[in-house]
Write a protein that binds this DNA or RNA. Structure first.
Lengths: 154, 154
DNA sequence: TATTTTGTAACCAATACGGTTACAATCTGC
DNA sequence: GCAGATTGTAACCGTATTGGTTACAAAATA
């Protein structure tokens, strides 16, 4: 799995947290810690899939196209990877009967796994993800503060 | 997913069909249609995992270490990929809190999918796979014969 | 028109993979 | 012990994929 799915979740999460105003690719790139073009490539896919709305020019950027309660992780996944990700690579020269049949067999196992993943993703909304992430960030930050206090006390 | 899992299933399937006598990497490479070293790399992993027994020298090669009824696909999978295959690649420089937390979130989704795949694989034995593959090969060959007959008649 | 922002092409470095050659280690049989 | 067969593994090559960067056209605003 490439990192596009993770970036897509970041973008949708940023826009959910922002809750209204648009964010530019530059701003999200700073939040994520990468180049703006990396963000834009995924931004463009999410836009084409209808999950976000994007405008160019001054005051432009992206906003969520729908309520985050009405977007699930499967839609984000399929927006950035139209073809299955869980697939075996097949060697070039398999023209005999046995390898072809076994290859199809392995393909089916992978397709089943991909479908199970999609079902799992479908059951979680962006809003729910945002709640989970926020909660964990609070914990991570308070743990950091504790560590700083311990360090200052010593 | 790299092709090692598919090759592992080929090796175990070949040995099941053979049903006793050992097969060398050269023979299996011919059956699979690739170089013998490719086979040997996987052969070695299956040997270390205790799924096959391998001997060098004249009359050497590999045989199944157990009854194919007592080997399941999960064991084959874990023999060739000790670490999870379904994992997102993370960008190099993510030292901020949000990307780290979201990254862990995506990791957990992938771990869940990997575990689901393992459970699925665990439920099928090499013997059952062999039956499925044999049945499909028979179908494929009879379809081929029919095509040849149709071609000869025209 | 000038500025901002997206969209996308072109390219680079790093990584992973399948494949090949080569060779040491190990086993059998004479 | 010697010769031949077989595995085990390192080294290397070409290709494909990936994340990243630069560059620039297209589009939108003021």
């Amino acid at each position: 799995m490439n990192s596009d799915f993770a970036i897509a979740l970041h973008i949708l999460g940023f826009l959910t947290s922002r809750g209204g105003g648009p964010l530019t690719s530059e701003e999200m790139a700073r939040l994520y810690g990468t180049n703006a073009v990396i963000i834009r490539r995924v931004q463009s896919k999410l836009n084409k899939a209808g999950l976000i709305e994007t405008r160019r020019g001054v005051g432009g950027g992206s906003v969520l196209a729908r309520d985050p309660e009405d977007i699930n992780l499967r839609e984000a996944y399929e927006a950035v990877s139209p073809e299955p990700e869980i697939l075996p690579r097949h060697p070039a020269s398999c023209q005999q009967v046995v390898p072809i049949v076994v290859g199809q067999f392995v393909n089916e196992i992978c397709s089943d796994a991909e479908e199970a993943l999609l079902r799992q993703l479908e059951s979680m909304t962006i809003k729910a993800m945002d709640r989970t992430i926020r909660s964990r960030i609070r914990k991570a930050l308070s743990a950091k503060r504790s560590a700083r206090r311990r360090k200052a006390a010593s």
